[in-house]
């Protein structure tokens, strides 16, 4: 190994990937499927496998890089939503709805549907 001090790099990049996925919104919502690395029509088993694979990389027991705890919490949110049938259906519908709005308004998402409480930013 040329740079032993860079050992943690892949782990760090994995965590960074989650932050980037969570920040890149499609039609104004987080693309949870992309975050887990699955297709929107993926079955439960595929989602579970991808979640587990990411958990092994992103859990603080397995990854000592900075910010990994936050990345794991985001991953948990993704899993909680997509593993719950009712919540997943609601999410899919909303994403589709947003998608069609976006098409109608030439790619500019409506500013009406603002965040209910965007003030979390200050934590």
């Amino acid at each position: 190994i040329l740079y032993p001090n860079l050992n943690g790099l892949p782990q760090f990049l994995a965590a960074l990937d989650v932050y980037i996925s969570a920040d890149e919104k499609i039609n104004g919502g987080v693309d949870w499927y992309r975050l887990l690395g699955v297709q929107p029509y993926a079955d439960e088993d595929t989602i579970r496998k991808h979640y587990r694979k990411l958990a092994l990389i992103l859990h603080p027991d397995k990854n000592k890089s900075v910010g990994v705890g936050g990345a794991f919490k985001i991953l948990s949110e993704a899993w909680n939503l997509l593993s719950d049938k009712a919540r997943r259906i609601a999410y899919d519908q909303k994403q589709n709805l947003r998608g069609s709005y976006t098409a109608v308004f030439h790619g500019k998402p409506s500013t009406e549907a603002t965040n209910s409480n965007g003030f979390h930013d200050f934590f």
Binding site: K25, N27, G28, G29, K94, R98, P109, S110, T111, A113, T114, N115, S116, N117, G118, F119, D121
Partner: peptide, 9 residues
Amino acid sequence: IGDSDKKSS
């Protein structure tokens, strides 16, 4: 309240 650039239903 909040950042109006953030969209969500």
